[in-house]
Simulated scan of single mutants.
Amino acid sequence: MIEFVIAVFFLLITPGPGVLTTAGIGAAFGFRAGFRFVAGLCLGGFITMMMVVSGLAAVVFAVPSLRTVLLFASVAYLVYLACRIASAGSKIGFAPAEAPLGFRNGLALQFINPKAYVVATTLFSGFAFLPHSPLLEVVAKLVLFNLIWVPVHLIWLAAGARVRRMNLSQRTQQVINIGMAVSLLLVVCVALLASG
């Protein structure tokens, strides 16, 4: 179980589309504005995990043409997002918006987020600690996962909100943008490796 908790922590602490967008909402609109988006991410993550645990994701991804379309759509979106982040000027990687992304956006993001499937597959197919009680193990993994997932996303939201209050130099902002973009491209690499 300790190995599972360590794996969850390291899989979640690395920036992916969900945490980067959460930080962006915090940076653009503040901490309170991001709660609905994080709630959508949470429900979307739960549904994604259930799709993986039930085997539905495996059935969908077993259709080669559908799997290819979904993979390219996800990769294209993530590359686009990485380019937008890397090329952002004085903003911290996010284009200005009229209103924060809400619950539906958070929910939808998890379905096209390849990292969500990679994480769920890794955590639920590996790290068996209750082999004689698979249902109890799934429930325990869900509880442990969310005990880490929720605080990690709230920390990213708070970090974004803190960036909003800072007056960073142009150079520092560019370094942050490039770091965020590289992180997203690493997610793309993970998605491509997982698809092979």
Score class of each variant (00 low, 15 high):
88 A>V: 09
88 A>W: 00
88 A>N: 08
88 A>S: 15
88 A>D: 04
89 G>H: 10
89 G>N: 14
89 G>L: 13
90 S>H: 12
90 S>Y: 08
91 K>N: 15
91 K>D: 15
92 I>L: 11
94 F>C: 12
94 F>Q: 15
94 F>K: 13
94 F>P: 01
95 A>I: 13
95 A>M: 14
96 P>Q: 13
96 P>H: 13
97 A>W: 14
97 A>E: 14
97 A>H: 13
98 E>Y: 09
99 A>E: 15
99 A>Y: 14
99 A>H: 14
100 P>G: 10
100 P>M: 10
100 P>C: 14
100 P>I: 12
102 G>S: 14
102 G>R: 07
103 F>S: 05
103 F>H: 05
104 R>Y: 12
104 R>N: 10
105 N>R: 11
105 N>V: 12
106 G>N: 01
106 G>A: 00
107 L>W: 04
107 L>K: 07
108 A>H: 04
109 L>W: 02
110 Q>K: 02
110 Q>M: 13
111 F>T: 06
111 F>C: 05
112 I>H: 01
112 I>V: 14
113 N>L: 00
113 N>K: 01
115 K>A: 09
115 K>R: 07
115 K>I: 04
116 A>Q: 05
116 A>C: 03
116 A>K: 06
116 A>W: 00
117 Y>T: 05
117 Y>Q: 03
117 Y>D: 07
119 V>S: 08
119 V>K: 04
119 V>F: 14
120 A>M: 03
122 T>G: 02
122 T>E: 02
123 L>K: 06
123 L>M: 05
124 F>N: 00
124 F>L: 14
124 F>Y: 13
124 F>S: 06
125 S>T: 14
125 S>E: 11
125 S>N: 15
125 S>H: 12
126 G>I: 00
126 G>E: 11
126 G>T: 09
126 G>P: 00
127 F>N: 03
127 F>A: 01
127 F>G: 01
128 A>L: 11
128 A>H: 12
129 F>G: 06
130 L>Q: 07
131 P>E: 04
131 P>A: 06
132 H>E: 15
133 S>E: 14
133 S>A: 15
133 S>R: 10
134 P>T: 05
134 P>M: 08
135 L>T: 11
136 L>C: 02
137 E>F: 05
138 V>Q: 03
139 V>F: 00
140 A>I: 07
141 K>G: 01
141 K>M: 00
141 K>Q: 03
141 K>E: 03
142 L>F: 07
142 L>I: 10
142 L>D: 00
142 L>G: 07
143 V>P: 06
144 L>Q: 06
144 L>Y: 04
144 L>T: 09
144 L>P: 03
144 L>F: 07
145 F>H: 08
145 F>G: 07
145 F>A: 01
146 N>P: 03
147 L>E: 05
147 L>V: 11
148 I>C: 08
148 I>R: 04
148 I>M: 13
149 W>Q: 12
149 W>R: 04
149 W>S: 09
150 V>P: 07
150 V>Q: 01
151 P>M: 03
151 P>Q: 10
